[in-house]
Nucleic acid binder design. Sequence first.
DNA 1: AAGCTAGACAACCGCGTTCCG
DNA 2: TCGGAACGCGGTTGTCTAGCT
Length: 384
Amino acid sequence: MVRPPCCDKLNVKKGLWTEEEDAKILAYVSKHGTGNWTAVPKKAGLRRCGKSCRLRWTNYLRPDLKRESFAPQEEELIIRLHAAIGSRWSIIAQQLPGRTDNDVKNYWNTKLRKKLSEMGIDPVTHKPFSQILADYGNIGGLPKSRTRIGSLNRDMKNAFLLKAEPYPSPAAAAEGLMTTIASSGMEPIQDNFFANNSINHHADSDSSLDLLSQLQAIKALVTEASNYTGHQTISPDQFPNECSLSSSPSSSTCSTCSTAAQQKSALAFSWRDFLLEDAFLPADHPQGQEDHALEFSSRDFAGHQTPNVVPQSHSNNEISAERKVDNNNVNNNHNGVQGMDSGVPSYGFHASSSTDDSSFIATMLDQENEMFSEFANLLEDPCY
DNA sequence: AAGCTAGACAACCGCGTTCCG
DNA sequence: TCGGAACGCGGTTGTCTAGCT
């Protein structure tokens, strides 16, 4: 690959940025503004690639960046958006004021992916692992993708072979996340979006959604979020660490929530709330009746509000210290989502106690190995 | 106390898209 | 219309640090 001209010099510095370099970037931007990043290194007196300068500014130095840890509601929104549009981190980040795509991506890779895996849900497809394995039995219509299978392997490993499981059981893990959902008061994604749009989404939902559909998904989800926060976009102030659906005053004033949606209580959450609706849902499982207004264009997103965040100046250490506080807030909210199994399709997977795990894992892995050997040729991806 | 490991996050890389002459 | 430069994005890697043995 041909390096960009700005990076063509052998003496371009790489690696972590120093405070001096940061100061130069800040001084330059405050004086000249952003843009023409290729000229920045020279004008700012930096031995850095312009691309690196832009990245440093975008991901770290920008004054409107939020430094605090992700709130449960932000977490929830990320999960839902990821379920809707996949790893379009920049789009997801746009719905999280003060967060960069890099932030969201890192948070997903380090926290959320693992959390879903521990719940027995494939973070790529948002389906239970057991169901994906079952899909292999009907492999005829399955797209060949080593990536997805690799992900499955990796995430199943996370889910079942962790040496120290943070949760006493998958059910507890699920409960922790479900409680997060309950506190956010949001609706299941498939009810509010997929079920109401004639989008043919399959296991590989990422590729089956066109841009407009993705934007619609975001719109619906963000609208949902704002219904509970009472604001158009989500700002830091709108994310209390703890909240309950029942006490959310704005839930009754929502303009786009359907009656059916409003009738849902916090106790109505189920496993499938985290899954993409698909053809495998039991026939007797009626989809949501909500009919969210989705008549808008992609322009709706162009006017995304810029967050009004007070500029902050943090050192790396400060940020690290702040972020380390976060995790406790995420799972400490076990405020009584009971009856996880009520109304929950099992998909052949049962959140089990630890005593059942070994046999369950063995069964799953045996099944996986069997299918891999049987369909090895199909699983070969010629692209690699 | 030293070494090891895993988690968190910053930064880089490669590629696709957009812009502009 | 075309080609090069700039920009933006997503995946991946590197580095630092805290916790554990």
